[in-house]
Design a protein around this nucleic acid. Structure first.
Lengths: 206, 206
DNA sequence: CGCTGGATAGAGCGTTCGTTCTAGTCCCTT
DNA sequence: AAGGGACTAGAACGAACGCTCTATCCAGCG
């Protein structure tokens, strides 16, 4: 048991290359076009892997890889979120700054790099339960990050949790609107309004 | 010219059956799974039409039909939005009521009938420009409906337009979150928070 | 040194995709 | 009654889909 565990660890280091490349590429492509619009062959080509490798690492095929890709996107977005939220001690201003960061990233990618989960989430509803759950988990993680920031700014526990749900939902909706209209404005407005909303819950000024 | 116009009018009444059925079915299926996940054959079957009819009415094929379907979904959603916004003279309360209506409709459809545009909008970004523009137009229409309501409640012109963008974005994001998590809560929270936000802009109480 | 099993490689499977095409039906006009 | 255009009908096409399969490579071990 212990021996197999060690072996497995070694193997994972060795295989990290191809497996990681597949997951990262899948995450990026699904961020752009979602699940159905991302053919396995293109995925494998861009990841510089082969079909053999894909089905070796993911016997469950495209869907299993997609679940892993959502997990990867979850982590990446969470990292960006943490950094943006830490940029200002005040929660309201930090959230406005986050919207700004999202707007910049979106514009810099020619409006391609939206939320790494949204597109897939909508496709998965009611047809790919495992994917749908992975997406739901991602939203939960991000909400928790925001909630922690709100609590740190003195907002009461339950209120913070509720507010965090709306903050993430608004950022998601505004990001989609910015993508489709090719304009930073929706995200910047969302930032401004979320800041005002959050500010109305914080006990004191800064 | 006038004669052709009359002829056309007659024809449109005659052809309303099949063409309308195709558009309505496309709108419904795309509401659930988006563009790529909706095969033409299934579409034609459920609309009780045939491929011949589809390519007769929409020489541009699936994409042209999709644009028409987005337009149809736009109109349907706008109608619902108007009704919900009219349910209360106060803008803040009306918007909260709207979120409630969306939550009820979503739950009643077993979380399938989300926004008729969102899924397609995300898929269209950067690959199907005509579809993307149709989606952007839809968002614009809905924003205008909300903006009018806000202005009617005494919010200043420019402020109302900005706020309307965030209201629609938040409702979109919350609806998606509700769909994926199979829970009314995100929509209901969005309604409560939007109400508070809008209330902070309205001049007087009620 | 040969053996073994994880990893790579891609041709090819059956299926399904969007679309085209020809044939046919129906009704309006003359 | 005859002609013509709008509409219906679905078989068939090439391309692309996700996936399977056999062959090969190569590092680690007895």
């Amino acid at each position: 048991m212990a021996a197999t565990a060690v072996t497995k660890q070694k193997k994972q280091q060795a295989e990290a290359g191809t497996r990681e490349r597949l997951v990262r590429t899948a995450s990026r492509l699904m961020q752009h076009g979602g699940y159905e619009s991302t053919p396995v062959k293109q995925l494998v080509r861009e990841a510089e892997a082969t079909l053999g490798s894909l089905y070796h690492f993911f016997p469950g095929g495209k869907q299993e890889l997609a679940v892993a890709a959502i997990g990867h996107g979850d982590g990446e977005f969470a990292q960006m979120l943490r950094a943006a939220l830490d940029s200002d001690p005040d929660a309201a201003r930090a959230i406005e700054a986050t919207a700004g960061v999202l707007a910049d990233a979106l514009a810099a990618s020619d409006w391609r790099d939206g939320c790494p989960v949204t597109a897939t989430a909508l496709e998965s509803v009611g047809r790919l339960p495992e994917l749908q759950e992975a997406c739901a988990r991602s939203f939960g993680h991000w909400q928790e990050l925001v909630a922690a920031k709100l609590r740190a700014s003195g907002i009461e526990e339950a209120e913070a949790a509720d507010l965090a749900v709306t903050v993430i939902a608004t950022l998601e909706g505004a990001e989609m609107t910015s993508q489709v209209t090719r304009s930073r404005t929706p995200l910047l407005l969302a930032g401004r309004h979320l800041s005002r909303l959050v500010g109305s819950y914080t006990p004191a000024g800064t």
